[in-house]
């Protein structure tokens, strides 16, 4: 019979251990990629065109493709997501519609990216006739990051003290004046974190892009209707085709860049968020 005291010790040990395992897994993954990838990244790698199917040269076209798709998706999704967040927090109240909308957003968050890919292929590529293009890929990603932006805007807006709104109403402002000039202004940094996290997600997304943006890589895109191969898709193609050492090295370089993007997005959104909550608390 083990005493309650010993059991307590063993259990606490297991709990501590679990978190170390998780920490080790993350560090292991990052180290594995970055150790072999960081040496590949230099000015030439990020500023020159790929040659011989990506086995030589750099990844300039992929970086441009990624940026273009991110730009479209965040420009489209941000206003809609923020507006949705405003409605849910400031206007909907206990309206039954808000429950339905929240459920819809949860549902959307659970839909696998390959399903978004099928939808994007059938709707943007074929039905609207945009072809495999930056525009099709960007629009699909806009649908995918919408939920992230809605959720973070909601949180940021909820964090704004009620006293701000009351002060504004007391001065005779209308609801929209209050929302746009008082609430949104103080919630702006928080909302920004949602957009940054959405961008981080968009940069790494692959499956949906594969079915909508094509994989063309030998010329820089000239319009939103150009096909493009973003970095994430390039990594997949290199990894699956590659036995060639040049391809493998470039895959590691590309993976390192993707990890860096995610780390920067997460750290900066964290920094903004903690600054934001601190100032709000001080002002209160």
């Amino acid at each position: 019979m083990i005493s309650a005291y010993t059991k307590e010790k063993i259990a606490k040990l297991a709990l501590w251990l679990s978190s170390f395992v998780i920490l080790a897994v993350l560090l292991g993954i990052i180290a594995f990629v970055v150790v072999r990838g960081i040496g590949v990244i230099d000015l030439e790698f990020i500023s020159s065109m790929p040659r011989r199917g990506g086995r030589e040269g750099g990844i300039l076209t992929m970086i441009v493709g990624t940026l273009a798709i991110i730009a479209i998706s965040s420009i489209v999704a941000s206003p809609i997501g923020v507006a949705g967040g405003i409605y849910l927090t400031e206007y909907a109240g206990r309206h039954p519609l808000s429950k339905v909308i929240t459920f819809g957003a949860d549902w959307l968050a659970g839909v696998p990216s390959i399903i978004f890919g099928l939808f994007g292929f059938a709707f943007f590529v074929v039905f609207l006739g945009w072809g495999f293009s930056i525009l099709s890929g960007g629009m699909v990603l806009a649908c995918m990051i919408l939920n992230t932006i809605i959720r973070t805007s909601q949180e940021a807006i909820l964090a704004v003290p009620v006293s701000y709104r009351e002060a504004s109403y007391a001065l005779g402002a209308t609801k929209w004046q209050t929302v746009s000039k008082v609430v949104l202004k103080s919630a702006a940094p928080g909302i920004l974190t949602g957009v940054i996290l959405g961008i981080g997600r968009a940069a790494g997304e692959t499956a949906a892009i594969m079915l909508t943006a094509g994989s063309f890589m030998f010329r820089l895109p000239t319009s939103v209707f150009s096909s493009a191969r973003p970095m994430s898709l390039h990594l997949y193609i290199l990894a699956m085709e590659g036995v060639h050492p040049g391809a493998i090295a470039r895959a590691f370089g590309t993976a390192t860049l993707l990890i860096l993007v995610v780390i920067i997005a997460n750290l900066s959104s964290r920094a903004i968020m903690s600054y934001y909550t601190r100032t709000l608390r001080q002002e209160r």
Partner: peptide, 15 residues
């Protein structure tokens, strides 16, 4: 944990 959630699936696949 946030980083684990943020790492792209293609990078997990690659590793």
């Amino acid at each position: 944990i946030e980083l684990l959630a943020g790492i792209p699936s293609v990078v997990y696949g690659f590793v």
